[in-house]
Each structure stands twice: as C-alpha cells, then as structure tokens.
Amino acid sequence: METTLTWTPVARLADIPRLGSRVVATAGGDVALFRCADDSVFALDDRCPHKGGPLSQGIVHGYAVTCPLHNWVIDLASGEAQAPDSGCVNRRPVRLEGDRILLALPA
C-alpha cells in the first residue's frame, strides 16, 4: 500500500539559526531540520545510525552534522555516514517556500 504524503508547514527559516537545527515531532518519530550557512535546509530522522544519538544536538558544518555522542559525521543530503564509518539515516522530503519550511508527512 502506498502512503500519500502532504507538504506540511513545520517552521520558518528564521526559527533555525544558520548552522543549527530544530526538532519536529511527527507521528513517525522526531525529525531534525538542519539549516546550512547558505540557508539550504535538510531533514533527517533525529537518530544517528551508530547508537541512536540525537543528531539535532550535533554540530552542523558545511553540508554535514557531527553526532554529539561518538563524532560520526553524517552527510545531510544523503543521510550517509562518512568514512571510515558506515550507515545511513532516513532522509525526509523537505523544501522551502519563501521563508516557510515544509516537510512531506503522511496524510
């Protein structure tokens, strides 16, 4: 069965500092929204693939976040852990409309 997704406003760009994050609680679990220095926005499940650490509490640098527990570096665009580590975080569809951040959530 295919799930229908609805673009849902969850924040404004100004709600997230540059190189910062914000957590959005969803029915499917917490999602971390990340804002990069160039105002691009990414959304990942808020769980590191290593030990489940809260990625939203990590340090954002470039287009990556470093997990606060064990320093795994996660690529924000792909969700992939950077070598030498391996693993992947579930990416969530996100987009900007003006200054609004929309997240694709199950209808």
Rank of each mutant, 00 (worst) to 15 (best):
E97L: 03
D45F: 11
T8K: 15
D99G: 01
D85K: 15
V23Y: 05
G52P: 06
R35A: 04
H61G: 12
V94I: 00
I74K: 00
V94L: 00
L19H: 12
E97M: 03
G58C: 08
L33Y: 03
A77W: 05
L76Q: 04
R12G: 11
T66W: 01
G20Q: 00
S86V: 11
D45H: 14
G79I: 10
L76P: 01
L76T: 05
S21E: 04
P84T: 08
W7F: 13
K51Q: 15
G79C: 14
G87K: 01
A37H: 09
V31R: 04
A81Q: 07
G53K: 07
D30Q: 10
V73I: 15
S56N: 12
P49Y: 12
A11I: 04
T4C: 03
G58W: 04
A32C: 07
C48T: 06
E2A: 14
I74R: 01
G98E: 15
T6D: 09
G79K: 01
A107V: 12
D30A: 09
L105I: 02
Q57W: 04
D99V: 03
L103W: 05
A107M: 05
T4I: 13
R22L: 15
R22Y: 02
C88I: 13
L33T: 00
D30E: 15
E80I: 00
R91N: 13
D38R: 02
R92Y: 09
G20A: 10
R18M: 10
T3N: 10
S40E: 15
R100C: 08
T3C: 02
P93I: 02
T4Y: 07
G28C: 10
P106Y: 14
L105V: 07
A43N: 01
A37N: 10
R35H: 01
L102A: 02
D75V: 03
D75E: 14
C67T: 09
A25M: 13
L103H: 03
D46L: 05
L13S: 02
V65Y: 04
G87D: 11
L5C: 08
S78M: 12
I74C: 05
C36Q: 12
D38N: 13
V89W: 06
E97Y: 06
L13T: 04
A83S: 13
W7I: 03
G52F: 08
G87H: 09
N71A: 14
T26A: 00
T3A: 07
G53Y: 08
A107P: 02
G28D: 07
G53P: 09
G58T: 06
A81D: 05
R18G: 09
S78T: 15
P17F: 14
A11N: 02
L13V: 08
V94M: 02
A83V: 11
G28N: 08
A104F: 08
H50S: 03
V31C: 07
